[in-house]
């Protein structure tokens, strides 16, 4: 009986893991297949679709997404760092209220935020703002609460005795921030910035309202295309964009991101 149950447990575990990995494997396989349909029969491998990626059709939206995500990551990183510093470290009066105000966008679904922003822009007659500027503004609103929360968490874990020790040894305020506080919370800030980059780069529900023909992000271009065609070039686009995200994570990790945090960088 016990044996049967443990076999069932392992089977269910394997089934769930297969369910998780299946669509990813299928997309990778499709990106090398000559036709859009993935069959279990052997097919000729081709790299043709990856060659097609270098056309303007895919490069332009990729560069737009890259530009937007970079600006969003930098802006929300700086704003989130300043906001979390003031609220958690300086403990301004009313910090609880300020913090819940800064985190309030988290409780509103993205699609609702998207409607509100595009409605607002058309009310004040700023339709020309659609495209990159509106996307940047909306993605900052989306990313800022996440960054603020991540930085606030690492600030809350920051040992204030280190700060006191530096002060006793005669360090000024700016010196303490520069040489004690910032190095200690760097992993939190970097993971916040990476996260902001990824949610901007992959975003759909907000972007879908704010793009403009000729000024569209990569994921939106892809889903508009997918609505009427399952062209295998889409698989290549998706695999390439996932590889790009992995490279971004790897780079930030190299600068000293998450694993430092996991392995007790701040605690």
């Amino acid at each position: 009986m016990t044996r049967v149950i443990s076999i069932l447990f392992w089977l269910s575990l394997a089934a769930v893991l297969a369910f998780i990995t299946l669509p990813l494997l299928v997309v990778v396989a499709a990106s090398f297949s000559p036709t859009a349909t993935v069959t279990f029969q052997p097919f000729e491998w081709t790299f043709r679709w990856y060659g097609d990626l270098l056309s303007n059709r895919w490069l332009d939206p990729f560069l737009t997404s890259l530009k937007i995500a970079t600006v969003v990551a930098a802006t929300s990183g700086v704003l989130g760092l300043l906001a979390a510093y003031c609220i958690v470290y300086e403990r301004l009066p009313g910090s609880d209220v300020l913090m819940s105000y800064l985190l309030s966008p988290l409780s509103v679904p993205q699609i609702v935020k998207g409607v509100a922003i595009v409605l607002f822009l058309s009310m004040i007659g700023f339709q020309g703002f659609l495209g990159t500027p509106a996307l940047i503004a909306a993605h900052v609103v989306l990313a800022l609460p996440f960054v603020t929360r991540m930085v606030a968490t690492s600030l809350a874990n920051f040992d204030a005795n280190l700060d006191r020790a530096a002060q006793i040894l005669g360090a000024g305020k700016l010196q303490r921030i520069r040489h004690v506080l910032l190095p200690m919370i760097k992993p939190g800030v970097l993971s916040g910035v990476t996260f902001a980059f990824i949610i901007s780069f992959n975003n759909i529900p907000l972007s879908v309202f704010l793009v403009r023909p000729g000024d569209s992000t990569l994921p939106i271009t892809v889903i508009n295309y997918l609505e009427y065609s399952l062209d295998p070039v889409m698989a290549a686009v998706n695999v390439a964009s996932m590889a790009f995200i992995l490279v971004v994570i790897f780079l930030f990790e190299k600068i000293g991101g998450f694993s430092a945090q996991i392995h007790g960088g701040s605690k």
Partner: peptide
């Protein structure tokens, strides 16, 4: 956790093919 890095479009595309 790996699917989280792949983004929603890639995974949805995978399910479309399947």
């Amino acid at each position: 956790l790996s699917p989280e890095l792949a983004g929603v479009v890639l995974r949805t595309y995978g399910w479309l093919i399947i």
